[in-house]
């Protein structure tokens, strides 16, 4: 499975690579990282035929996670990629907006990696 992680904090890369050390090593999962909404769209445009799961933060300067979600879901690609949004704790408002925009699932910050792994394996 190919996962695109979108977050403006660059250290998430290191964190994911360590948290999914075994899965990456075994080739079970592959991670790509984009540090802004714009970079994520660029990546997706260049990798149109690969099935990717997108894991995106909401609070980012420039294009927010919500705008990214909207743009991805607007595009008529079949099947549309799965988008999991990461919301800040207690942020019901963004949760509702993301839900309306067609987010496939939600995770709250701080990320519970055990839960994330379970979710990813279930997909």
């Amino acid at each position: 499975m190919n996962v695109l992680v979108v977050d403006d904090e660059e250290d998430v890369k290191l964190l994911f690579e360590q948290r999914f050390r075994k899965e990456i090593k075994s080739g079970e999962m592959e991670f790509e990282f984009a540090f802004s909404g714009e970079a994520a769209l660029n990546y997706l445009a260049q990798h149109q035929h690969e099935a990717v799961l997108i894991l995106s933060d909401i609070n980012m300067p420039g294009m927010s996670g919500l705008e990214l979600l909207k743009k991805i879901k607007e595009k008529e690609s079949a099947p549309p990629p799965t988008v999991v949004m990461i919301t800040a704790y207690g942020d019901d408002e963004n949760y509702k907006i993301a839900m309306g925009l067609g987010a496939d699932d939600f995770l709250t910050k701080p990320l519970d990696f055990t839960l994330l792994k379970e979710k990813l394996k279930a997909i």
């Binding site: 904090e9 964190l15 800040a88 910050k109 701080p110 990320l111 990696f113």
Partner: peptide
Amino acid sequence: AHEIQNPLNFVNNFSEVSNEL
């Protein structure tokens, strides 16, 4: 709150993962 939350998450996550490592 947001600016502290992010670094704290990293502190927690990197500590946890180091423990496992």
